[in-house]
């Protein structure tokens, strides 16, 4: 809403690009692996933010699009030798088409009912694919190593996957920013605040919500395609992992829902914290406990999330941090 007074988006993209280049510059593979995961989480959290933060619809089972994109792309690569880049796009498009089909009915539900329905859809999809033999059923699918030959071996394939994941994350963040600053974004936020009022001022809520849902499904589908391409294996439990879904919600809330920077800050912080907990022997076993405690503290005391809190505490920052 606020007119551009600071080059927020370019600055943000530059920071992310510099971080992304870091492991390549110092040739550190384990750092690259960590950042691969972080950019994936930024994609997931920023996508959820579009439907949850801007529109006010809590999509608990959003990971379903990550899984679908992963499965479609994997299937194309394994059975038709499709190039990864082609397969990723060709996998994400049907995933978003499914979002369109299920979005129309379930976005009529409000509040808790919508949240429950999204959980149901993810679980239905997971258990159905468990039985779907073309996708390998409960065992899933895995690549022959020869698949990676097209890309110059597994090492180069991993590099390609990393590059694509970074680009997907940057595209998600850019889209999130553009939506927030657009008329469309304003209509989403009006729906979030009061759907009846939105309708009376001339917004068609049903349409706006479905468009937001479809957009927010596209990037997780791309991320899923990329993740499982690099992984070489895909199975239902990993592809449709409800825990990962809820974790991306947590990241959103941690950083601040409804802001562009919030999900990024939340994803980075959450991943850093998890890494810290796992590698500290005394805390390794209590990893989940501490993650829960942290979440509770944020939910109870920092409702707006870190970015939201900063923006409220120092209104000057509103012009600089979106």
């Amino acid at each position: 809403m606020i007119r551009v007074r600071a080059p927020f988006l370019p600055a943000l993209l530059v920071v992310l690009a510099v971080v992304a280049a870091l492991p390549l510059a110092v040739n550190n593979n384990s750092l690259r692996e960590e950042l691969f995961l972080m950019f994936m989480l930024i994609t997931l959290a920023s996508s959820i933010n579009i439907i949850m933060g801007y529109t006010g619809y809590v999509s608990f089972g959003h990971i379903v699009f990550f899984g679908l994109g992963g499965y479609f792309a994997f299937y194309l690569m394994q059975n038709f030798n499709a190039h990864f880049l082609v397969a990723a796009l060709a996998g994400a498009i049907p995933a978003s088409a499914i979002a369109l089909v299920i979005g129309v009915p379930i976005l009529r539900l409000r509040g808790a009912y919508f949240a429950l329905a999204t959980i149901g859809i993810n679980e239905a999809m997971r258990t159905a694919i468990n039985n779907f033999e073309p996708f390998g059923g409960a065992v899933g699918m895995f690549f022959n190593f020869s698949v990676y030959d097209t890309y110059g071996g597994a090492r180069n394939a991993a590099l390609l996957a990393y590059g694509v994941m970074v680009v997907v994350a940057l595209a998600t963040v850019t889209t999130s920013y553009l939506i927030r600053r657009s008329k469309f974004g304003l209509s989403l936020m009006a729906i979030r605040e009061d759907q009846d009022v939105a309708m009376v001022v001339g917004i068609d809520p049903a349409r706006a919500k479905v468009v937001a849902y479809v957009i927010s499904s596209f990037f997780p589908a791309l991320a899923g395609a990329t993740f499982f391409f690099k992984n070489g294996i895909i199975e239902p439990g990993v592809a449709f992992d409800l825990l990962r879904s809820i974790e991306s919600l947590v990241m959103c809330v941690l950083g601040g829902t409804g802001t562009v920077a919030g999900p990024i800050v939340g994803a980075a912080l959450y991943e850093w914290l998890r890494g810290f907990l796992i590698t500290t022997p005394a805390l390794a076993n209590f990893q989940l406990f501490l993650a829960g405690l942290l979440l509770l503290v944020v939910v109870l005391f920092v409702t707006a999330g870190l970015v939201g809190w900063l923006r409220n505490r120092y209104p000057v920052l509103r012009a600089y941090i979106q």
Binding site: M1, R181, L186, D194, D196, A198, I203
Partner: peptide, 25 residues
């Protein structure tokens, strides 16, 4: 029924954006 979390100017802009005139932001 104000849109509570949006600024005052955003509330009024919503009215101008989506009504009869269909103005740009």
């Amino acid at each position: 029924r104000p849109l509570n979390d949006l600024s005052v100017i955003a509330n009024v802009t919503v009215g101008a954006c989506f009504g009869r005139e269909n103005l740009s932001l």
